[in-house]
Amino acid sequence: MRIFTNDVATANALERAEGRVVAVAWQDPLAFGRLIAGNDLDAFANARSFAYASAHWDEDNVVEDDLKLRNAELLAAFESESEVYLLFGGSLADQLSLAQILGWLSERPINEQAKARLMTVDGPLAVFDDGALLEIAKAGEIVPAGTHAIYAVAWDAVSGADPTEVEAALERASSEGLSSLATGLGRWLQELPSVENGLSISQMQVLDTVRLGIGDARELFRQVQSTEATPFRIDWEFWQVVDGLCSGADPLLTTASGQPFLCPPKDLAFEAFDAQVLELTERGRAVLEGRSNYLSGPFAERWLGGAKIDGESPWFWDYASRKVVGAAAAGA
């Protein structure tokens, strides 16, 4: 029995539950860094490796090899004679991974598509013990054509450059009762710059938590995670959000020592990382209080899927209407 699931811990639990199970973790923080469009998984692995390397998570060639090995496992599974089980939770990370797999599968032969057995759980998978996870996976059912199509559309949307396509995919998912996908896409759209102050919701969560007196980086991560209805970020991804707010000529956050914020690459002494205390700058306070707009001054460029967030960004998130709006409507 072959199972593709959300992370290494879940894959290990499934294999512990039954020796004949082969479980593969489809683990990639897809809310971080650029996503390239299309369903060529090896091309994606190549492009994705540079996002990891730029964050100092690993060497690009190591990341590319690991992702291509995972891709080969997926191809071999669907080319085999056996059914293939997909087990994912309800977080944004899980739903994006599932969308990537089903997007790829949508271009495979019909007989391969018919081998997929899908089970999604609205909440996290980590709350289930080994045996329960396996029984949940075994209950997977053939993916309906409509579900397959919606997830494929969702992947095209998040890896594309137009967030209104994500909005359309969300509406379609909602109308078809795919609540986890719809919720995930809604959370994704909140990572656009807001009309009010140019910040994503993650950036606002970080700044607001620091304003409340949480300056320790690890505790900051825990506190921000607790504000998420369904947490989806890994800590290494979170540090990149913090680093962006600490970057540039006039940052929103700074360290109490005045030294640059240290993201934790593999070779960093964690004593130095843990010694950091984060503080709001005057600009950070002004932006958070609505007296200034983040995008009106220097800021760290970033990617949201296939959309680049920079000084020319044409799309914003309007919390009042809960809609994506263009630069003209946002007054930018």
Rank of each mutant, 00 (worst) to 15 (best):
V195G: 00
E196N: 08
G198N: 06
G198R: 03
L199C: 04
S200M: 03
I201V: 14
S202D: 13
M204K: 14
Q205K: 13
Q205G: 13
Q205T: 10
V206N: 05
D208M: 04
T209Q: 11
V210F: 05
R211E: 15
R211V: 08
L212A: 15
G213Q: 04
I214L: 08
I214M: 12
I214G: 05
G215M: 05
D216R: 07
A217W: 07
E219F: 06
F221P: 01
Q223T: 15
S226Y: 01
S226G: 06
A229F: 08
T230E: 11
I234A: 12
I234S: 12
E237T: 09
E237G: 10
F238R: 00
W239G: 01
V241L: 12
G244A: 11
G244V: 05
C246D: 04
C246R: 04
S247E: 01
S247V: 03
G248S: 07
L252Y: 09
L253G: 06
L253S: 05
T254M: 14
T255E: 08
T255F: 10
T255Y: 09
A256C: 08
A256W: 06
P260R: 10
P260Y: 11
F261H: 04
F261A: 03
C263K: 14
C263Q: 14
P264S: 07
D267I: 10
L268D: 05
L268N: 03
A269M: 12
F270L: 15
F270E: 13
E271D: 15
E271Q: 12
A272T: 13
A272F: 10
F273L: 06
D274G: 01
D274I: 00
Q276L: 02
V277D: 12
L278N: 07
E279S: 07
E279R: 14
L280P: 10
T281F: 05
R283C: 02
G284C: 05
R285T: 15
V287G: 09
V287N: 10
L288F: 09
L288I: 08
G290I: 10
S292T: 11
S292E: 15
N293C: 09
Y294F: 11
Y294G: 03
Y294I: 00
L295Y: 05
G297F: 06
P298L: 06
F299R: 08
F299N: 04
F299M: 08
E301P: 07
E301K: 12
E301M: 10
E301F: 11
R302V: 06
R302H: 08
R302W: 09
W303V: 06
W303R: 09
L304S: 02
L304K: 00
G306L: 02
G306N: 00
